[in-house]
């Protein structure tokens, strides 16, 4: 692999969840990028950890070390443009690295921002998906990074899909319950939050819950009671893609 091709291509950063727990997200993201003809690479199992979980659990020194290693790994690959489907990685790299590190020599965006920019490569390729869908704003993506419109714009590009909003959405959206290191120490609480949020917030008749975060995706998939499917944003676009 020469450096020149690396400069041309973007880095799709999978994040630990999509690498190891929600492969449905990384697989579909890569398949989608392929179909769009996007030149991308991944670091796969050599990614390491962005440090988000460490920051959330107060282990700041370790987080800083993880951040330094991550930046070194990405920049030594020559990447100038990083795209991730994990809002935790996105927030950490885009908004918190600049606070704890001297220099972050690349741009980081959430996949929804990237896809909206490239929407011309997508919009005529999507076939009809006749479902009533509801979108869940992830905390890291919405409240913490202000990205509310891009995922909705992408969902609305799918013909036949009816987007219904949750009772509380955008900045008032409810956390799925797995953020902040809660899931690892209080899994029952985490599941209970997801269950309550799904029951209280999703309007009746919804057949598909669209997530834009591997943690939300994992948590909602685990507790949903069968009335609706749970899919992450790239999965939905891939599903709609006409072969």
């Amino acid at each position: 692999m020469g450096l020149i091709t690396m400069h041309d291509s973007i880095l799709y950063w999978k994040g630990c969840m999509s690498r190891l727990r929600t492969k449905n997200i990384s697989d579909s993201t890569m398949a989608l990028l392929d179909r769009m003809g996007v030149n991308f690479e991944t670091l796969d199992g050599n990614e390491g950890c962005c440090g988000s979980v460490l920051l959330r659990t107060g282990q700041v020194e370790a987080a800083k070390r993880a951040a330094e290693v991550t930046v070194e790994r990405i920049s030594s690959g020559g990447f100038k443009e990083v795209v991730t489907a994990c809002p935790g990685c996105f927030r950490t790299m885009a908004s918190e690295y600049p606070k704890i590190l001297e220099e972050v020599p690349f741009r980081v965006r959430h996949i929804s921002q990237f896809l909206v920019e490239k929407k011309d490569l997508i919009k005529d390729r999507l076939g009809s998906v006749e479902l009533k869908a509801c979108y869940h704003d992830p905390c890291h993506l919405g409240r913490h990074m202000g990205v509310y419109d891009e995922p909705r714009e992408l969902i609305r590009m799918v013909p036949g899909l009816q987007l219904i909003e949750m009772k509380n959405n955008r900045s008032r959206s409810f956390c799925c319950g797995s953020g902040g290191g809660v899931r690892s120490v209080y899994p029952d609480l985490s599941r209970e939050v997801a269950k309550t949020v799904a029951a209280d917030q999703i309007p009746s008749g919804v057949q598909l819950l669209v997530t834009a975060c591997p943690f939300c995706n994992f948590n909602f998939r685990e507790v949903h009671v069968g009335q609706f499917r749970v899919m992450d944003l790239p999965e939905l676009l891939l599903l709609a893609w006409r072969v």
Binding site: G48, A66, G181, S184, V185
Partner: peptide
């Protein structure tokens, strides 16, 4: 939390939690 300490160790040694 012991679980968080375990996660930290895993992240630093194995690159994932």
């Amino acid at each position: 939390q012991p679980k968080h300490a375990e996660i930290m160790k895993s992240i630093l040694e194995k690159g994932n939690p």
